[in-house]
Design a protein around this nucleic acid. Structure first.
Length: 410
DNA sequence: TACGAACCTCA
DNA sequence: GAGGTTCGT
């Protein structure tokens, strides 16, 4: 049985490209709640599906390493549980992918030429997925120059990039995020792919699946299926959104939103059931090439108030359309055209699972600053625990709030 | 523009 | 019952 690749035991089978850790940190970028299907399968090794293929990625100081598995099991593509219609529609999806330049590796070509092409194509896919043409070092410098609070975070949380995800996967994953936290979303998306996606390959005990096609998601049996899998009210949103896209727009519509303005794309997405302002902003930012989209939830609202003394809407009790707009505009004015990228750095820094990084940084402080740092560390932890001056009534509530925060998604 | 209802899980 | 997002009024 095939195993998950590990760099130390077969480096010659891996390929690499130059990439400093200041430009990309796999651990932060792949686990900060923008995508939900990458898993750390060995220390520092991340395995997931991208462009219909299974990859393992790892990095050393100045190098990004990648291992691309062959889809040995892909003869069963399209023969999943929904019956005849699906395999036909799966071919549509392959055509869709081909138009994105992501699927040519599956086609037969003369071996020598094909091999080279495949390698080049894989590298291009990876560069595209991580948007490596965007120079993160420069952006961090710009954000830091404009924003002292960002400077404090940036030294620890380097290399946090926005991925350029597949629009279908991104949209339908984010429809799952409402009232939800990262670990549960991960489980849901995994079950979604198992139930409705084509199997790609098996490594150790894990079978990897492609993300379901629009057609598979639109099938009328899907709502009941997903309810059984614990999707709750989101089951209907997923099926209805898929059906609405296919019925009224067509297969290419989502990807076409990459070529329209941010506001036009956002409004278009908001016509779909289960897609409000926040989910639309996530999709715009994470797969539709809208780097100025800033997804605002109550968490981001809290960051704005706590770290930026944002007070314009203090009387507001809920996240109205106006608050969304104003906070988005506030951060766009502060950070500029890649505000959404900067936002993800702060969001990542606030996740419970990455708090140890802050503590390590404090631990490593030069000695003369230790005392001062300890003092500010205590205040910082307090703020992370009980928000920004809101007096919690009990320790239980305090913990409950932390629990939500630590798992909150974008 | 803003509020309450509905949605679901967890404590 | 709290928690956050979407939807309907």
């Amino acid at each position: 049985m095939a195993k998950h690749a590990v760099l130390s035991s077969g480096a010659k089978l891996w390929r690499s490209l130059a990439c400093a850790k200041s430009e990309l940190r796999l651990d932060l970028t792949l686990a900060c709640g923008q995508s939900f299907r990458w898993r750390e399968t060995a220390e520092g090794h991340w395995t997931g599906v991208m462009g219909g293929r299974v990859w393992t990625l790892t990095q050393t100081d100045d190098t990004l390493w990648y291992y691309l598995y062959t889809n040995q099991d892909n003869q069963s593509r399209g023969d999943k549980k929904l019956g005849d219609g699906v395999s036909l529609r799966d071919n549509n999806n392959r055509a869709e992918r081909r138009s994105k330049g992501a699927q040519r590796m599956d086609e037969e070509e003369p071996q020598a030429v094909g091999q080279q092409d495949r390698e080049l194509e894989a590298e291009l896919m990876l560069r595209d997925f991580f948007q490596l043409h965007v120079k993160l070092d420069d952006l961090y410098r710009q954000w830091g120059a404009a924003d002292p609070h960002f400077r404090k975070i940036a030294d620890i949380f380097t290399g946090v990039r926005i991925l350029r995800q597949d629009p279908t996967e991104c949209l339908f994953s984010f429809i799952c995020t409402s009232n939800n936290h990262i670990s549960r979303i991960q489980g849901m998306v995994e079950r979604l792919c198992q139930a409705l996606g084509a199997p790609l390959c098996q490594l150790d005990q894990t079978t990897y699946y492609d993300f379901p096609t629009l057609s598979a998601l639109a099938d009328s049996s899907v709502e009941a299926c997903l309810r059984d899998l614990g999707f709750g009210y989101r089951a209907r949103f997923l099926q209805q959104s898929a059906k609405q896209i296919l019925d009224t727009h067509g297969l290419q519509w989502l990807e076409g939103l990459r070529r329209v303005s941010y506001l036009e794309a956002r409004d278009a997405l908001r016509t779909l059931p289960g897609v409000g302002t926040k989910v639309a902003d996530c999709v715009c930012l994470m797969c539709l090439d809208k780097p100025d989209a800033v997804p605002v939830d109550t968490h981001v609202w809290q960051i704005a108030q706590r770290d930026y003394k944002y007070a314009a809407e203090k009387g507001q009790k809920s996240l109205t359309e106006k608050v969304h707009r104003n906070i988005g505009d506030f951060f766009r004015k502060l950070w500029g055209p890649y505000a959404g990228w900067a936002h993800s750095v702060l969001f990542c820094a606030d996740l419970k699972k990455f708090q140890s990084l802050k503590e390590m940084a404090c631990f490593n402080q030069p000695k003369k600053e230790e005392e001062e740092e300890e003092k500010s560390r205590k205040t910082k932890i307090k703020r992370e625990t009980d928000g920004h001056g809101i007096n919690m009534k009990s320790e239980n509530q305090k913990k409950a709030k932390m629990g939500v925060k630590e798992e909150r998604t974008l």
